[in-house]
Design a protein around this nucleic acid. Structure first.
Lengths: 174, 174
DNA sequence: TTGCGATAGTTTGCATCTAAACGATCATCC
DNA sequence: GGATGATCGTTTAGATGCAAACTATCGCAA
């Protein structure tokens, strides 16, 4: 296994003499990122239990609360999941009385998804939990750190967009 | 968490919105983090297809490759998943000929999990894919950015540890 | 009008994950 | 030695995810 991946800045570093000071190994940072995400996912799952919501359900409901009347396909696009997944998710949310499927005039294939009163109340609790948790954890870091994180995550995302190969869902005509 | 495109609805709000503040809203950075992770997960899933591995399988195998002979419970602890999950995961890896369950002298309840020759070869390919992908994306950022990310992620993780409530798996002498 | 491709949603089969119940084994205390 | 509780792995039920096949409907063109 010879470091085939380490090319990019090694080349630069080879040109200019000085060794990158305490060169942070990208792979190590990657692993730290992945582990942190696992922690956050677990923590958020636990937090949202107080509202009897799973993360998936909360994601769907909070998206709906910002744009009521979306179709399942719209929702699938926004949530980066398949429409088959949304189908079952909505089924369960309808069964729980949090969401309604309303017939859509002009297209009998799709429905307009709307929150019920209970759904609105529930997602409100979820959003409060999210706000509280994020403030308590990420929000407790130094503002400069939060700003730095924001900036680097943006740069990383831009790099992924360039790379292209990722997140390739069925977008048509982008 | 999702809150993807602030589509047509929010255009009004955007007009009246003041200015990007010096201190970025933690919630916004949180959402950026979550979305970026989704992208990375999808991209890595696609990359690992070349080695015919799922992310879960790769995680398990790469952990085993660093500490061969672990029990399923050990693995569950390291991977932050339940032992029931590991049970099925190992079943399928054994069926694929990548992992072996060896009887453990002194404890007939557990097995020592070992990579087969094929397993070692496969995880090697997976690791190469991972290295390459990480170098190409995260590794392409400025070293200072990677270092900043590393530092802030560490601070965030420390904050989570203080917070305690998260990632609450059965810790026993971890 | 008729036909055909595109789109929305459902369904199926499978992988992954949790929580919880269960069986086997181990460790310990009496 | 024997009861008892802890630990390991398995199993079950159910939620979540994908891919792909399928149904119904829509849009468009001939």
């Amino acid at each position: 296994m010879a470091l085939e991946g380490a090319s990019r800045h090694d080349r630069r570093a080879a040109d200019t003499a000085p060794k990158p000071l305490a060169a942070p190994d990208a792979l190590r940072v990657w692993l730290r990122f992945v582990r942190l995400n696992r922690r956050l996912h677990g923590a958020m799952t636990a937090e949202l239990k107080a509202a009897r919501l799973s993360i998936s359900q909360f994601d769907l409901l909070s998206t709906l609360s910002e744009a009521e009347g979306l179709s399942q396909q719209d929702l699938a696009d926004r949530l980066y999941v398949t429409k088959g997944n949304v189908s079952g998710l909505v089924d369960r949310l309808v069964a729980s009385g949090l969401v309604e499927r309303r017939p859509l005039a002009g297209d009998r294939r799709s429905h307009a998804l709307c929150l019920t009163a209970l759904g609105r109340e529930t997602v409100g609790r979820g959003l409060a939990i999210q706000r509280t948790y994020v403030s308590r954890t990420l929000g407790a870091l130094a503002p400069a750190d939060i700003a730095a994180l924001d900036r680097v995550l943006g740069a990383w995302r831009d790099r992924l967009r360039q790379d292209g190969s990722g997140s390739g869902r069925k977008s048509k005509g982008g």
